[in-house]
């Protein structure tokens, strides 16, 4: 069988190189019964197009960001809700206990997932230091077009979001059409946005991640042994990418520092003030069915559990 998988990761990127290596391994270990073909660089269209092509069977799977699968499985947006996590430790604790639930949810929605790969926390990047909610007021804050959740949250905070396609962000920063963006260090460097900003606020805004899914109808047709091989190889790659990306984000952070960008902290209490406001909007979104509220509460409970546990055992080593 041939598994045709699309991704927006560029050809030649490390991500793609790992994936192709994995494809070779699968081919050898299944004695050629399973070939994985990758279409990188977004040539199959955006995530919505890829989803459509999976439905008609032209493609069999794709690498999606959390946002790309909301239509299929709304709860996938949980980790990426804004201002949920305060640190990577919190996040690791929650992920080590919730990844499986989300993977099962995806499977129920008809997609086999091979795990989640970290993209890092989106951080506020701007031309003036941002230390408080007031520093954000009157500034033009970029929101990716069509991202209505983030837009609603910005408006809830009384801020002025500006929607722009990704292609316009670089010139938008250059010309002052937007003043503030939120992205991970890797993302800022990849799109060269870091050349147009001077300050990075360290408070995590939202967690970014990606997942590789394959249509369950197609996957179920593989023999049980072949399924096991594909799972083992792909899950291995995703686990590795997950840890690799954390290191890459750290490296990217350092690189941003050496290139003269300055890291600033929020004033004491500011983040919590924003968080309580944001949480209200998030809860409103949840009660409108944007995600399952019980699962959201479960996530919050886990965060509290992380803080109430004895200090010595802190930190979640993810499986």
């Amino acid at each position: 069988a041939v598994l045709k998988i699309a991704t927006i990761a560029p050809e030649g990127s490390q991500w793609m190189q790992e994936m192709r290596k994995g494809a070779d391994e699968i081919k050898t270990r299944t004695a050629g019964r399973v070939t994985v073909k990758f279409y990188g660089g977004g040539v199959m269209g955006n995530e919505k197009s890829v989803l459509r092509k999976i439905r008609i069977g032209q493609l069999h799977g794709g690498a999606f960001t959390g946002g790309g699968l909301i239509e299929v499985y709304p709860d996938i947006s949980l980790y990426s809700l804004p201002m949920v996590f305060r640190s990577l430790d919190e996040l690791d604790y929650v992920r080590s206990r919730m990844d499986k639930t989300l993977e099962q949810g995806l499977e129920g929605a008809g997609f086999v997932s091979f795990g989640f790969a970290e993209g890092g926390f989106a951080l506020i990047m701007a031309n003036k230091p941002v230390r408080s909610l007031d520093d954000l007021r009157g500034k033009k804050i970029w929101v990716p077009e069509g991202d209505s959740n983030t837009y609603a949250i910005m408006e809830g905070l009384g801020l002025s979001p500006v929607t722009l396609p990704i292609t316009d962000v670089l010139t938008g920063l250059q010309t002052g059409l937007i003043d503030i963006i939120g992205t991970s260090p890797i993302g800022a460097i990849a799109f060269q946005w870091h050349t147009k900003v001077q300050y990075i606020s360290t408070a995590p805004l939202a967690y970014l991640f990606a997942t590789l899914v394959v249509d369950r109808k197609v996957f179920d047709k593989l023999s049980v042994e072949d399924q096991a091989v594909v799972r083992e190889v792909m899950e291995g790659i995703y686990r590795q990418l997950d840890t690799q990306n954390r290191r890459d984000n750290e490296k990217a952070s350092v690189a941003l520092g050496t290139q003269g960008l300055e890291f600033v902290e929020f004033n004491p209490g500011e983040v919590e003030k924003m968080r309580s406001n944001v949480t209200e909007t998030v809860l409103a979104l949840g009660s409108k069915g944007a995600f399952s509220l019980p699962l959201y509460q479960e996530m919050r409970r886990l965060i509290e559990a992380y803080h109430s546990q004895p200090r010595s055992g802190a930190g979640g080593v993810r499986p």
Partner: peptide, 24 residues
């Protein structure tokens, strides 16, 4: 600021060639 020029920069930046390519 031709878009294809910017796009080339972005694609090249993400390809593993051990040499940086900046849009500037």
């Amino acid at each position: 600021p031709s878009l294809p020029l910017i796009l080339y920069g972005i694609v090249a930046q993400q390809t593993n060639i051990g040499q940086p390519v900046s849009i500037e």
